[in-house]
Design a binder for these strands. Structure first.
Lengths: 141, 141
DNA sequence: GGAACCTTCACCCGAAAGGGTGATTCTTCT
DNA sequence: AGAAGAATCACCCTTTCGGGTGAAGGTTCC
């Protein structure tokens, strides 16, 4: 969020220079002020949309899934690593091991290893059970 | 969405009148143009934030409400039979075909036939996809 | 530097799943 | 009575999954 604010500030700074430039051009050439103001309005509307979405994205995700909240602690307590979690997520989407491998740019064997470890940690023996259990444990969804 | 656009348009109209008013005031009083442009910028930034959020909120609301209600009509429209639906439900619990067969007191081959037909009707090719899609279509869960 | 862990990959083997076809029995609808 | 669909089962074959083992490179921590 702080990064977004800084970006917004920087955008403003850049924009001020830009505005000063076109202000000069318009005034020198004696063009209408409405045009200038219109440009400002469009710029800041776009900037507002961007900043607004950026700042509230995290909130909207939470709103989107009221029941679910990502909990690193639960993953840690089960000993599930980052990569294993990624495999789990794609598994839940119904992808095959080969498709997961393609998506994560690793080999099929690697995905198999991850999924095997995942099954051990979740104490299941099939991917459908893993997905089911992960949803129960609020690990995904 | 259309309502939002209309609201946005109306806001713009109101704003133009308002801007004309303060433009007049500022020019008459010979205040700095930067101040005027700043006001415009602030207005349109706020407007952009509001419009941006407004336009994306509906998506989240739809996702937010996964209230499940059994709908025979949806099953009928897909041509999914009672037995196929039972297989689907057990599938979603993470059971293997053999376990489903034992639970429904039928042979493994029968479960395979049901699941094959199910996959055709759901237009998927794997059980994990079937479960995923069935949840999307609000058939189960 | 060594221990522990993660990530990556390989190979083997058996089990499970999926696709295709065909066939029988039963109910339901016309 | 005949058509249509559902439910049942079988056999074939291919693909995918899962379990087991081993190993190499990279981090992190002590």
């Amino acid at each position: 969020m702080t990064r977004t604010i800084i970006l917004y500030g920087l955008s403003l700074a850049v924009l001020i220079f830009f505005l000063k430039f076109i202000e000069y051009r318009f005034l020198v050439r004696d063009l209408s002020m409405e045009f200038y103001v219109g440009a400002v309005a469009i710029f800041f509307t776009a900037l507002g949309v961007w900043a607004g979405l950026k700042l509230t994205r995290k909130k909207t995700i939470i709103i989107t899934n009221p029941a679910f909240q990502f909990d690193q602690g639960r993953l840690d307590s089960l000993g599930i690593s980052k990569r294993e979690y990624e495999v789990l997520e794609l598994m839940a989407k119904g992808l095959s091991n080969q498709e997961i491998a393609d998506k994560l740019f690793v080999s099929l064997n690697t995905v198999k290893t991850h999924s095997s470890n995942l099954f051990l940690k979740l104490q299941v023996s099939r991917r459908t059970q893993a997905v089911q259990k992960a949803k129960e444990l609020q690990l995904i969804q």
